[in-house]
Computed example of a mutant assay.
Amino acid sequence: MTTVAIIGDGPAGLSAALFLAKNGHEAIVYGQDKTAMHAAQLHNYLGLDDMSGTDFQAAARTQVTGFGADLRDEQVESITRQDGRFTVHAGDATQDADYVILAGAKATRGLAEELGVDIADGRARVDTENRTNVDRVYAVGRLARPSRSQAIISAGAGAVAALDILSREAGKDVHDWDTPPKDGE
């Protein structure tokens, strides 16, 4: 099982955690539920007619933990890297991880810089899979798109990063596609 440390618990981080946990990987999300979503009202999130950001966060957190993700109400102080693995330092605890997803803006920028992530014009440079220049480190949400941030785009970026990790671990392209049960099942 792969362990992924996700720093940030907004739509991007929770979306990544959902895909990873649902597919049997250990998804550890660090955040204090202080995301900008609590100041949002969702009228343009596909599939939702109207929902407060606070209600969205509550529903997303419940969904993610239902699939087995570990939500930790902790602030990450640093991340160290050795031999292709990461150690997340939060309070008195440490957590080893195979991958890191930086899913926030202010709190994750310093961590990104510490890890050597290329940041230019106020944003982390990422490729189409949200990979940074540091192997096994992804940047999603407002860290990668600070001036064009939007909840549904952030959630999609988290899913893209998670699918890339799932594909890397499987050694082939992975699709997370669920089908409804057939009649009689």
Rank of each mutant, 00 (worst) to 15 (best):
S78F: 03
P146E: 03
G158P: 12
D83A: 15
T65W: 01
Q63M: 10
D92G: 06
R145A: 08
E74H: 08
Y45K: 03
E26R: 08
E129V: 11
A124R: 09
G91N: 00
T128M: 13
T87I: 09
K106V: 14
G91R: 00
A90H: 07
D98V: 07
D98Y: 05
R136I: 03
E26H: 06
T35S: 10
V100G: 07
V134F: 09
L14Q: 06
T65Q: 11
V134H: 10
A17Y: 00
E74D: 11
T35C: 10
G104C: 07
T80H: 07
V140C: 04
L20M: 02
A144R: 03
G156N: 06
G53H: 06
D83Y: 05
A17M: 02
A90P: 04
R72F: 12
D118A: 09
Q63I: 04
I28M: 13
Y99K: 14
R123C: 09
Q57N: 14
A59K: 14
I152R: 08
A58M: 07
V140G: 05
T35Y: 01
I101Q: 00
F86D: 05
V117T: 02
K34I: 13
T87C: 08
G53A: 06
Q63E: 11
R72M: 14
A60E: 00
A155G: 03
G31S: 14
Q32A: 14
T35H: 04
A69W: 01
S15W: 05
F19D: 09
Q57R: 11
H38P: 02
R148K: 12
N130R: 14
D50G: 11
T62E: 14
A97R: 15
R131A: 01
G31P: 11
L46I: 15
A105S: 14
L111P: 03
S52M: 01
G84H: 09
A112M: 11
T62V: 09
A16M: 10
L102N: 05
G110F: 07
A69E: 00
Q150L: 07
A155L: 02
D98L: 11
A21Q: 04
G24A: 10
V64Y: 01
I28Y: 07
A105K: 06
A103D: 01
Q32M: 15
L115H: 05
F19W: 08
E113P: 03
L18S: 07
A36F: 06
A157C: 15
G66C: 12
D135M: 02
G84F: 02
A58K: 15
I79V: 13
N130I: 02
Y138D: 02
G104I: 06
D127T: 10
F67P: 05
G13I: 04
P146L: 02
A39E: 13
Y45W: 11
E114Q: 07
Q150G: 07
L143W: 04
R145S: 15
D135P: 08
L48K: 09
V76P: 00
F19Y: 15
R136H: 15
Q150V: 06
R123P: 04
D96S: 12
L14K: 05
L20I: 01
A58V: 09
G110P: 08
H38N: 13
A112N: 04
R131D: 02
V100P: 12
G24M: 06
A40F: 08
R142S: 13
Q75T: 15
V64L: 10
A112R: 03
E77W: 04
G116H: 12
R145E: 14
D127S: 14
A27C: 01
I152F: 12
T94R: 13
L46M: 15
M37K: 01
A17T: 01
A39M: 06
R136D: 12
L143V: 10
L115E: 05
